[in-house]
Write a protein that binds this DNA or RNA. Structure first.
Lengths: 368, 368
DNA sequence: TTGTACGCGTTATCAT
DNA sequence: ATGATAACGCGTACAA
């Protein structure tokens, strides 16, 4: 086996073609405008012969601009992250950018580490889908002076574009659907809220919904709501706590149609696991609608009703936003919110509920 | 808003500390061995003051070695890919490498494109989880002269390490389990096999299992098996074809306990969708065991029996293998196969079946 | 239109 | 132990 032949350099091509390095460089950067067809083909042949392609490293060093975008993601295991990653990666590729991936594994301590690692490769900008607790990160980020797009989670003190689901509307869709289906006792289950902006917004929207529903009630069947944060961890302890909470909720609301609204896909899955231990069934014992559509939503129990996020669009938009900035767009930070889409299934088909048509919207809200 | 301050360079630090660039460089690369404590602290201060960190680009240009690894993945949407991505990314980070991600979106045409894009950034090696149809890729890859690790799918003609599930054993585990549970009619459902090595191996293993079972049968209840390739596409047409096939299989095997063995998680989900249209239930009408464990396996129907792949280990091993090569390990291509683990659930609990204990092994097989 | 020469930020070699 | 300098591969003034 022969040793690896070193990569051909611009000098090799120049020699092979009998021209200068500058000419070869021009062949790649200004081919049409300032090159003789004769010479161009000579270079072309040499390039093909040596299988040469310019080193992005060297190019970036000279010209600036690595065409690299850093993507920091809180947890690659989260289906939401992957789905939006997919959209972002696609948009980047189309614009000639490549993605450098850094996964936090839900460890917020490593936010700074991630930014630094990415920064040392001169990424031109960042797409951040992170935890948001760490104040140092914001300082670090602003200091970097590179454009940033935040996805799903705002970071306090960070001066950046923001792309996300319209959380308030999504919660209204979900809760409104449940009420329309006849449920009157609502339980909002969320992961520990901490300082995660999307969790804060969703919980706030839920509380507001309940307040409004109570205020405007004329049916004499007022809507009641409460909130449950799932305990930390991932194991048996958490599951049994959740199971107890579900049992408790059932008991507490006996006689009134009750339903659960789930924070996201991770929570929904935990709820499903807990329900498997309760002597009950989604849609009969308890209603359920969860934020985040997944592969399995249609097939678990009677089908889980969801609010589907336009994950692909979110990722695409995040990338697009960033690339616009890289091209020089100088606007104050934008906020782009996309609507989710309610997908009603068996888990929210209350007994004797009135049927309501689905409203399949997904338009972009205004930017500000 | 002030313009972005340009990144501090080694020269800036040198000036600030009143030393030469060489000294600053030494501070980062050979600090302990050849630097006066006095000078070292001066440099340290300057570095902190300017928030300097060396440019990996420039370093790579001079020294070679970008500490970058290219990861080409056939489809980020596939849970298997993501799971192994997670393991790989973690191992890379721990070894000081970063991952550049390229997603093929199941478009094998772009294999070469991916390699080239990654190569232009001077990635030091590749982890490939790709389609394997494209012969050009192998040539391209070998030409690059950089180490490569193949995950899950061999590439004909490609000279590289290979990390994968032990497909033959996995199929034996799955099929053996089904037979032990009393099923006698087996249907192996797979995505279009084409030239994908893992699909070929699994199908071959299935056929072999059936042959052996027939040969050694002494019960008078011989095992029969057949194979079904799912049609291409993703839509309604595919689903109804699959549904018909399932119905047909049920009819054909009426009276004998029948079960389906699924190629991977994607196929399993399609089977689940199809079964939802058939007047039947997994584990009662038909048995089912699928390769790939997923989040939802325990909660769909009576629970889907699976062969769980050690995805995290696979990813980690792939990265580790590659990094060993980068550090100079010169061995002939290795083949590392990991065992899966059977997770029996309701979908394979045949009526009156004998209970068998789970064998929770996951040891590495020999390398060759 | 093409070639020459310099600099991007870093590390390695050679002096000191 | 530290400093000056060349070189890595490339793009771009500037000169021809």
């Amino acid at each position: 086996m022969t040793a690896a032949p070193p990569r051909a350099t611009i000098a090799d091509v120049a020699r092979e073609a009998g021209v200068s390095k500058a000419t070869v460089s021009r062949f790649f950067n200004h081919r049409e405008t300032l090159l003789t067809p004769d010479i161009a083909t000579r270079v072309e042949k040499a390039v093909a012969a040596l299988d040469y392609s310019p080193s992005r490293m060297a190019r970036a060093l000279k010209r600036g601009g690595t065409r690299l975008i850093g993507l920091v993601v809180a947890d690659v295991t989260n289906p939401y992250s992957v789905a939006m990653l997919r959209g972002a990666e696609k948009a980047c590729q189309e614009a000639g950018y490549l993605l450098m991936l850094f996964n936090l594994g839900n460890d917020s301590e490593r936010e700074c580490e991630a930014m630094d690692a990415l920064s040392s490769y001169q990424v031109e900008g960042y797409i951040l889908n992170t935890l948001g607790r760490d104040a140092r990160t914001a300082a670090r980020a602003n200091q970097l002076g590179k454009p940033i797009v935040l996805v799903d989670r705002k970071h306090r003190g960070m001066h950046a574009d923001f792309v996300s689901l319209d959380n308030a509307t999504a919660i209204q869709q979900a809760a409104g659907h449940l009420v329309a289906q006849g449920y009157r006792e609502l339980l909002y289950v969320t992961e520990p809220i901490r300082a995660v902006s999307s969790r804060i917004e969703r919980e706030a929207a839920f509380r507001e919904f309940v307040r409004d529903a109570a205020r405007h009630d004329k049916t004499g069947q007022p809507v009641a709501g409460s909130v449950l944060e799932t305990p930390d961890g991932d194991g048996e302890a958490q599951l049994s706590t959740l199971t107890d909470a579900l049992r408790d909720f059932c008991a507490r609301t006996a006689g009134r149609p009750a339903a659960v609204l789930s924070n996201n896909a991770v929570t929904t899955l935990r709820l499903v696991a807990a329900m498997a231990r309760v002597e009950g069934r989604w849609g009969e014992t308890l209603g359920l609608v969860g934020i985040d559509e997944t592969d399995w939503s249609p097939y678990v129990g009677p089908g889980i009703s969801t609010i589907a996020q336009p994950t692909d669009d979110l990722g695409r938009l995040a990338a697009t936003c960033l690339i616009e900035r890289l091209r020089g767009l100088a606007l104050p930070p934008r906020q782009i919110l996309l609507h989710g889409q309610l997908i009603p299934r068996g888990s929210s088909r209350a007994v004797g509920a009135t049927k309501k048509p689905v409203k399949p919207i997904n338009k972009r809200s205004g930017t500000r």
